[in-house]
Amino acid sequence: MPIDPTKPYDDSNIFARILRGELPCKRIYEDEHALAFHDINPLAPVHILVIPKGPYVSWDDFSARASDAEMAGFVRAVGKVARDQQLEVQGYRLLANIGKRAGQEVPHLHVHIFGGQPLGPMLAR
């Protein structure tokens, strides 16, 4: 169910629980600012989620409240994961859903990295 990104951070969300080690994930990258892991319901041959370690509901929340170090670290982590997966040669797509109309389902900022096949149009109509 889509969430309201204007609500306060809910620390019982699935990504907060993964960050605390309460739930497993197929981890592929971690540093002080970000965690990257394979999506449990992949929509492409490569489907990775990258999440900041801080409690941010959405991109709006993150861009308003995160420190410069958190922002730089998160963006660099997304790029590193894509390069480590060798996606830059064939291309890849980044997606961050924010809010109800975009279909955000988890109230923790996350970026999807899709690759490994032609990805089609940007939006389905």
Score class of each variant (00 low, 15 high):
1 M>A: 09
1 M>C: 02
2 P>E: 05
2 P>C: 08
2 P>D: 05
3 I>T: 00
3 I>S: 02
3 I>Q: 00
4 D>P: 01
4 D>L: 01
5 P>V: 07
5 P>C: 07
6 T>P: 02
6 T>D: 04
7 K>R: 08
8 P>K: 13
8 P>W: 08
8 P>A: 11
9 Y>G: 02
11 D>S: 14
11 D>H: 13
11 D>G: 12
12 S>A: 12
13 N>F: 02
14 I>R: 04
14 I>S: 11
15 F>M: 11
19 L>N: 09
20 R>L: 00
21 G>I: 01
21 G>Q: 08
22 E>T: 06
23 L>D: 14
25 C>N: 13
25 C>S: 15
25 C>L: 09
28 I>Y: 04
29 Y>H: 15
30 E>P: 08
30 E>I: 06
30 E>R: 08
31 D>L: 03
32 E>I: 03
34 A>K: 01
34 A>V: 03
36 A>Q: 10
36 A>T: 14
37 F>G: 10
39 D>K: 14
41 N>D: 14
42 P>K: 10
44 A>C: 07
44 A>W: 06
44 A>M: 06
45 P>G: 13
46 V>F: 15
47 H>G: 05
47 H>Y: 08
47 H>D: 07
48 I>P: 01
48 I>L: 07
49 L>A: 12
49 L>F: 15
51 I>A: 00
52 P>T: 04
53 K>R: 12
53 K>H: 08
56 Y>C: 01
56 Y>I: 04
56 Y>A: 03
57 V>P: 01
58 S>Q: 01
58 S>W: 00
59 W>S: 09
59 W>Q: 07
59 W>H: 11
59 W>C: 01
61 D>R: 04
62 F>V: 05
62 F>C: 04
62 F>Y: 13
63 S>V: 05
64 A>N: 14
65 R>L: 00
66 A>V: 11
69 A>W: 02
71 M>P: 03
72 A>C: 09
73 G>E: 05
73 G>S: 03
74 F>Q: 09
75 V>F: 12
75 V>R: 06
79 G>S: 14
82 A>P: 15
82 A>G: 15
82 A>W: 15
82 A>E: 13
82 A>L: 07
84 D>T: 02
84 D>G: 13
84 D>K: 10
87 L>P: 06
88 E>S: 12
88 E>H: 14
89 V>Q: 15
89 V>C: 07
89 V>I: 12
90 Q>L: 00
90 Q>T: 14
91 G>H: 14
93 R>N: 00
93 R>C: 00
94 L>I: 11
94 L>A: 11
95 L>K: 07
96 A>G: 05
96 A>T: 10
98 I>A: 03
99 G>V: 02
99 G>K: 04
100 K>T: 03
101 R>G: 15
101 R>V: 05
104 Q>T: 02
104 Q>M: 05
106 V>L: 06
110 H>T: 01
110 H>E: 05
110 H>K: 01
111 V>L: 13
112 H>V: 02
112 H>Y: 09
113 I>V: 09
115 G>M: 07
116 G>Q: 12
116 G>V: 11
117 Q>Y: 10
118 P>V: 09
120 G>A: 10
120 G>Q: 13
123 L>Q: 11
124 A>I: 09
124 A>Q: 13
125 R>E: 14
